[in-house]
Design a protein around this nucleic acid. Structure first.
Lengths: 201, 201
DNA sequence: GGGTGCCTTGACCGGGCGGTCAAGAGAGCC
DNA sequence: GGCTCTCTTGACCGCCCGGTCAAGGCACCC
């Protein structure tokens, strides 16, 4: 567990190969239905190799999820950093998140699965809270500057993430195409939803 | 398959018992990790009983999902029917959906899982499209009456569903409490997001 | 009584699962 | 060559899985 192993270059490559092959299989077939034997056969190695690099099948999935969320966060943060105005940062972050999902459909499917089993849901919750906190910080700034009506920033950030996740699901599960227009509408809804309106009711 | 069997009253009760026990176990332990033996032992019957009422474990889950979505739709439709104004109907539908999710947390978890495997995702997609269509019809009405800016009603309905699902996940997976305020904020974001604003950007 | 479904049992099946491990290969360093 | 440490192999383990089925009980009809 705690002990770290020193991997050689060859070792790191093997590990990566197992990881990416497993991700693809899990996404296509489901986590439980995909056996460890199937993975090692697919990569063309003996079974022991798997257990040399990973503690267990469960741990492998957790690793995939953890690394993915880290990657998503970096992508989002980088996009946000490219602007000054909070609302522009917000929009850039949203668009970057959507693009990331579009480019990582199989991970999106794994995430969907992950939320349904407690052990994995914990990992996801931790990771998502960080991403949401990044967004919430921005919303708070926007509130300070009067660009947004008062409100619970974390909750708003959560709602935005929800909409993004929905679009991601459309990419990952959908048969239909996801067009530019759909992305634009989604982004608009997020921003409008956060800004609030003066309308009645 | 196609052939229907005539169940006696006792038969229907047994079936319901299996169904609800399985739902609880699936939600708590996950679908794949829960074995058929575990289910029949829990209910206190022989294994054959399971296969008398259900074709397979997979079919059982599909049945659970199908019935749940049907139930959700009815709940939402009933709530909507209680008002006249489209926007009020919309809000009532949203609130009813949220309440339904809060009352059916274990099904919410099963739905989460279902989206991650193709066979189940198909069932969910079909069911969800119906629920979304109900909402979209309302949004179209609201657009006609000028209460909402022009836009793709289906997409807006989808976004609303996304936000509701997110809150549902909060109920189902969350450790934290989901307060009144959280529900209100969610509803407001949905309505504001749909109505649009005149703001810049 | 006999007959006709509906229902129930639980031993049984073939198979595949996640995971282990003794044995050894290869690379790099002395 | 010898030593060390990373890495690889694949047969093997015990287990339990989803699903089958011959047999028999039970309820209600004639």
């Amino acid at each position: 567990m705690g002990e770290k192993r020193q991997l050689t270059r060859r070792g790191r490559e093997r590990r990566d190969k197992l990881l990416s092959y497993a991700t693809a299989r899990f996404a296509e077939n489901g986590f439980h239905p995909t056996s460890v034997s199937e993975i090692v056969n697919g990569v063309g190695v003996g079974k022991g190799v798997f257990y040399w690099y990973f503690e267990s099948k469960d741990q492998l999935l957790m690793e995939i999820l953890r690394e993915s969320l880290r990657d998503l966060r970096q992508t989002q943060a980088a996009a946000m950093a490219a602007h000054d105005d909070p609302l522009q940062q917000l929009e850039a972050g949203i668009r970057a998140s959507i693009a990331w999902s579009a480019a990582n459909t199989d991970i999106t499917r794994l995430v969907l699965f992950g939320w349904s089993e407690t052990a994995f849901a914990e990992v996801l919750r931790r990771g998502r809270d960080i991403v949401v906190a990044d967004t919430a910080r921005l919303i708070d700034e926007a509130i300070d500057q009067g660009q947004i009506l008062e409100g619970d920033a974390v909750m708003m950030a959560l709602a935005i993430r929800a909409v993004i996740d929905q679009l991601a699901r459309e990419y990952a599960v959908g048969d239909g195409e996801v067009g530019e227009a759909m992305v634009d509408t989604t982004v608009r809804m997020c921003l409008d939803g956060v800004r609030g309106t003066a309308g009645a009711s």
